[in-house]
Design a protein around this nucleic acid. Structure first.
Lengths: 261, 261
DNA sequence: TAGTGGTCTAGACCACCAC
DNA sequence: TGGTGGTCTAGACCACTAC
């Protein structure tokens, strides 16, 4: 059996990782660290199963995850080979904290926030599946990189999501959603299942940001990512609109063919 | 056993779908068609296994695929429930033939093509991993919807990909890549494994399309999707740059959290 | 023909939830 | 305590590739 990486001390809430995930992690590390260099052949399923003391099925599920992420390629009757690593520095199909994004690009992240409790109308009510008159926390954030304004974001979070643990006054704190995912998962106990996003291009003068916060040429192109986050019960718990002016950062992703999915 | 949807007549080359895929398809159809309405509980793993005469593991793998696509939600100890259908009309993380895209939006698709065999230099050589002097088929296509120019695309396909089956003259035919995926898979015997894409915003006057083909205001925002397609051996076989002016169509996608992947 | 990955099964056991 | 989903195993057999 794999060594249990998490000690089973008293009544810990930490959930033991599944064997599949542990095997995945081990193989992933070996590939990243060069134990299995790109182009090399992975040990066979049987050998890995023997080495790690798990069944071949378990190994196979872990290797499937590697294959999903294009880290290895399996060839029936031949073997499993490590691919050249695909570098996706900024994957559009994953949600990443903007602060981390900026940090990953080598800049010092910062931000300023304007927070309000508002009553919305129109489209946003529908998007968040709220009744008219419902209160919503509106955050307008400007992210800076090395002090320069960089990304503009508008978050809308229905009050019902957090009012059982946070007062309206506390909710106005600028650093409330500093760790975005953690805010929902740990504080609100609302795990984000996924985001549904739309992507479009705009020019700066057609969008609505506080002009005093980010000054750009009116003709600057802006990549707009509007995303709605849903909890496990498929109820919308946040809408977020990111404005990325001037292609300071490009987004990448792996597109698949429908037939491969 | 499931009825084999593909008759096993003589030496057919059609590959039998795996049981998992067949079960997936059956459950998918039942959800889409309303046999299992949204909100309803799926039969248990055991019951489905019995009904379809496969093992629970097989059912589980199929249901996992449904869960991946957010069609169902599993709750341990309770059951598996059909979600509200997420409508993603135009998923950015899937490659879709542009003609189909236009058709799906209710327009009559059309296109015009300018094809050349060229020798590239600079960045595109690197992207396609070619030696200087290598010949490349360059297609510049304008897609129309109900006759109106709509999307501009530039394809670059290295000659080595098709020269063993198609002469250079034939390659200049405007409808060569009409069915894009089929062209590579069936004719060139080069299965496309995936695309690596970058997405950015531009304004019309900053891009390089033949101005005589699509006329837009110079300030029109343009969504630019540049993607490189790789074969199973991770060798680039096509680069494609799509220009979508004016947000005539918006792209959607499901973004996930890294921790959920 | 040997070796490898691909598929599928039966069954054991656990974790969680509702009653 | 019973029902459900979650995990894991051992093993059978098939399909493909290389020799």
């Amino acid at each position: 059996m794999l060594e249990d990486s998490i000690a089973q001390s008293e009544n810990t809430l930490i959930r033991q990782q599944s064997l599949v995930d542990q095997v995945f992690k081990i193989l992933y590390e070996r590939i990243i660290s060069g134990v299995y260099p790109s182009g090399s052949k992975l040990p066979t399923g049987d050998r890995l199963a023997e080495e790690l003391n798990v069944s071949r099925s378990t190994v196979r599920m872990a290797v499937s995850k590697l294959e999903d992420r294009k880290l290895v390629q399996r060839r029936q009757g031949v073997g499993t080979y490590v691919r050249e690593l695909i570098k996706i520095p900024n994957p559009l199909n994953e949600f990443i904290e903007l602060s981390n994004l900026i940090k990953d690009h080598g800049y010092q992240p910062g931000y300023s926030t304007l927070a309000d409790i508002v009553e919305l109308d129109g489209e946003m009510l529908e998007i968040l599946q709220l009744q008219p008159g419902s209160k919503v926390l509106q955050q307008r954030k400007v992210f800076t990189a090395d002090g320069d304004p960089f990304i503009y974001v508008v978050n809308h979070i229905p009050v019902w999501v957090f009012e059982h643990v946070i007062s309206l006054e506390e909710a106005l704190k600028p650093d409330l959603t500093d760790k975005f995912v953690e805010f929902f998962e740990v504080i609100c106990k609302q795990k984000i299942s996924h985001f549904v996003s739309t992507v479009r291009a705009e020019i700066y003068e057609n969008i609505d940001p506080p002009k005093e916060l980010v000054d750009n040429e009116p003709q600057t192109p802006v990549l707009v990512i509007n995303e709605t986050g849903f909890n496990e019960e498929a109820r919308p718990i946040v809408n977020s609109c990111e404005f990325h002016p001037g292609n300071w950062m490009t987004f990448q992703m792996i597109r698949r063919l429908r037939s491969n999915m």
